[in-house]
Design a protein around this nucleic acid. Structure first.
Lengths: 223, 223
DNA sequence: TAAATTACTTCACAAATATACAGTATACGA
DNA sequence: TCGTATACTGTATATTTGTGAAGTAATTTA
């Protein structure tokens, strides 16, 4: 944390008063789509406009925010908000796990559906991928720009019908393998006109608002 | 879509010029943390400040944005961006499914992890919920504010150890039921001190960047 | 302890911003 | 065709909002 540039003017770390200003700005941005003015901060903080200003200049120097001169509401907080949920770790894992220190990560879908901007979602229907843990109504994230490799889950168009399967390439032929003994693999020629890889499954999300134990019971009986 | 209030002033739908203003504002917000001023929009659009103003007033009337009078940069665009991926429908389903008309929904995590602000994420480890489709490294969304009901999946603390199970209440006792024949249900008294429901599982997400067919193969052999 | 930074205040002032009011011309729906 | 909304322009004019310069006191680091 030592200054790497000798040109950097000497400065203390962020002080309590400055942190307070920062917090007030953050709060302001939670209820307003625009940053506050100096006068507004002045009113909230109970100090004069120039008092606020000197804090902003200091915070800008310390890179805690960007203070753009001469323009109204020219306060830019970097990295807005995680907009996400904290992630605490693994289950089961060491406890107590629900503490702020224990936040392993912050959830951002971008992390999961990273990659190309062409990623799209697709709902699962049917049980052909049951053993891979997919159930009807699960939502798949499919990336059309990821090249299909053996061992990956893909969405393919077979004779115009979209289907989710494991992908396996074997010389001139490719196999689409279901994760359910009830169904047989589909084997086609690599250049078959009636066959097309739509994309690779890079993620999945499931809403469990209404999911009940019954579904597992059925699974249990079936297996 | 007919106006429900007779007090609503007559107005056309958003015109091309207005849509253009809207687009410019959106673009502005993509590169700036603060909304534009009337003067800035005037410069970009090539019309006078009052021209801009009348557009903003019209757009406010049409609820396309909020125009806050008397404050600088008082332009609030609702629902910033979907930040999401389009969802096309079910698999398998009628084709051709990848067309803009076919967008069933736009993915927003909020939709899935809706409810309280206390929702948090938790990684799954182990195979005790295998038959419910959960695998190690899956990320669960847990809501501590949803009351546990029989049939729902819950995260519980049993003697200090966090665990994911199906929840079943039966008079004075509650059962935590694993979705894997290898494990036995845990039955405890409702008021047992060593037992505590942390929250209800409301969703799950899985990253499949590296997931390979091998894992299914193993599942197949095991079942 | 000396030099610098913080944490403010006050008074004055220059820009930046939004409004008011008055027009002109075009397009649209009943 | 009438009445209204749109799509602007222009000239002023109020406010809002940000800056400058100077100063006081407390705090911090070397």
């Amino acid at each position: 944390m030592k200054p790497s540039q000798q040109s950097t003017p000497k400065s203390y770390s962020i002080t309590k008063a400055q942190q307070n200003v920062l917090n007030v700005i953050r709060e302001f941005l939670n209820s307003n789509a625009h940053p506050p003015t100096l006068a507004e901060l002045s009113g909230i903080l109970g100090i004069t406009v120039n008092g606020v200003r000197s804090h902003l200049l200091a915070l800008d120097r310390k890179q805690a925010l960007k203070y753009i001169p001469n323009i109204s509401r020219g306060i830019d907080l970097p990295s807005v908000q995680p907009s996400g949920v904290p992630i605490y770790g693994y289950v089961p894992a060491g406890n107590p796990f629900m503490s702020q220190d224990n936040v392993v990560d912050t959830f951002e879908v971008q992390r999961y559906i990273s990659g190309s901007k062409d990623v799209f979602g697709l709902y699962v229907r049917g049980d052909s991928m049951k053993d891979a843990g997919l159930a009807t109504n699960d939502l798949l994230f499919v990336d059309p720009n990821v090249p299909a490799q053996s061992g990956r889950m893909v969405v393919a168009l077979v004779e115009g019908e979209p289907t989710v399967k494991w992908f396996h390439k074997d010389g001139p032929t490719v196999s689409l393998i279901p994760a359910n003994k009830k169904y047989k693999p589909i084997v086609v020629n690599k250049h078959d006109e009636n066959f097309k890889i739509v994309g690779v499954v890079i993620g999945m999300i499931r809403a469990m608002d209404k999911m009940r134990i019954d579904s597992t019971m059925k699974l249990r009986k079936a297996s």
